[in-house]
Amino acid sequence: MSHGSNSERTDRTEVGIVGVGRVGQWFVAKLVEAGYDPVVCDVDEDAVEAAVSKGATKAGSPAVLTEQVELVLLSLPGREVVERVMEGADGVLETLDAGQVVVDTGTTPPDVDLHYQSVCHDREAGYVDCGITHEGPGEFDDGLGPSYSMFVGGTREDYERARPVVEALSHGHEFYEGIGNGHLVKAANRLRQTCRAAVASEVCEFLTNNGVDPERVVDQLEWDIPAPYTDPEYLTTRGFDRALRTDDGDTEERGFRVDHRGVRPRLRTSDWANDPAYALDIARSSDTHVPMLTAADQSLRLAENYGRALVDRELSFGDEEWHPFHVAAVYRAVNRPQEEWRRLAGGKNDGGVDGDGDERN
């Protein structure tokens, strides 16, 4: 197989898209709008015909597509498909040549990015990973689809070669130098989205299961929680009803007891009383599933204990913005203990090494 110069080929159009499903169709529309003549291929003939109707040209395989373009755009659902498209029969690597660049916009882990960057660089071709999301800035366009934000990883040289196409496809993008970093940022964004969805579900179920309409709370506080989370099919006060019937003679395990010392009965929590602990007690009594709150409560307790220990030993980071009771301090301490304790010790640690890693005399 020859891997000669691009200058030998005169029939190459600009951009090819392997995979024209939902996202790939929007890519076709955006590229045509920007003046490109995209070449497409997909195992789904209906998807290919839909792309052709938008102005694309059909290629019979990834290998044929790669022969015709300068930039190969992968819009695929996962690593297995990427591997088949790149290395399988009639795949991209059968015809990939020097000077071309592959842009992977699909759902691919960084180790796959690292592998294909190496393979492409061996052929003097480029490779960048490009995570995408439609949940960033910008508005949906009926004709051009979502406003994508893109996160691009790779070398600066490969990025610059892909940049005009990335700019045509995205509402905005950011380059994070280093292969795999684009998909790393995408994974972090999904982590945030997943946690937010879990929190939204948990908060709304907590309210619903204890007799309060979550939609009213969301409206009042202007929380960013979509309607499907706040549409309760039922409301119940079972948690509070059971709690208020509990007294010292009740043998059943309860999350909290009733305190009669005030003007009216109230729920009594543990000595370490704060809002998350109080919410946990309510959830236990009403049999409400709150795993996120349980985990967050444990982190808050750890932060409290950690902060007290630092204050007790008169340790600080010398950072006015740092607070020893902030939950982020615990995450830093657990994930980067050596760095954090060097900071606590003012750049020195007990092992005779200063903050720059040099031994002290």
Rank of each mutant, 00 (worst) to 15 (best):
N274R: 08
H323Q: 15
A329L: 08
Y306L: 07
R313A: 14
G307M: 03
D275S: 12
E320I: 05
R268Q: 14
Y306W: 14
N305H: 11
D248V: 14
L280M: 13
E320F: 05
H289R: 12
A295C: 07
L315H: 03
V258E: 02
N305K: 10
E321F: 11
L293Q: 01
P265R: 13
R245T: 14
D297V: 07
D281M: 09
S316E: 13
E253P: 02
D259A: 07
V290T: 10
A277H: 06
R301K: 08
V330W: 01
M292I: 08
H260M: 10
G318W: 02
D287T: 09
A303L: 01
D312G: 09
D281R: 06
A273S: 14
D248S: 13
R261M: 07
R313C: 08
R266C: 04
D281S: 12
N305L: 08
Y306P: 00
L267S: 02
Y278D: 04
L315P: 01
F325S: 05
V290S: 01
M292D: 02
F256R: 03
W322Q: 12
R301P: 00
E253M: 10
R261W: 05
V263F: 12
A328R: 15
A296M: 07
V330N: 01
E304V: 05
H260C: 02
N305T: 08
H289E: 14
R264N: 10
A328D: 15
L280S: 03
E314M: 06
L293D: 01
Q298N: 05
Q298M: 11
T288K: 02
E314D: 14
S270P: 01
H260T: 12
A277N: 09
R254P: 01
R301H: 03
I282E: 01
E253S: 08
F256M: 15
V327C: 11
E253D: 09
R313D: 11
H260I: 03
I282A: 03
V290Q: 00
Q298C: 07
S299F: 06
T294C: 00
D319Y: 02
Y278R: 06
E304K: 13
F325E: 06
A296T: 06
A283I: 00
P265L: 05
Y306S: 05
V330C: 06
W272Q: 13
V311K: 12
P276Q: 04
Q298E: 06
A273T: 11
R308C: 05
G307C: 05
V311G: 04
F325G: 01
H289F: 15
A328K: 15
E252H: 09
T251H: 10
A279V: 04
R266M: 09
P324L: 06
D287G: 09
H260W: 13
A303G: 03
A309D: 06
G307D: 02
R257P: 01
H260Q: 11
R301F: 00
D248T: 13
D275C: 10
G249S: 13
G318S: 11
T288H: 03
R245G: 08
R264D: 09
R245E: 15
A283F: 01
H289I: 00
A283Q: 02
N305Q: 14
V263I: 12
D297G: 04
E321D: 15
R254N: 08
A273H: 11
W322A: 15
G262E: 04
D312Y: 10
R313I: 00
E304N: 14
D250V: 13
I282V: 15
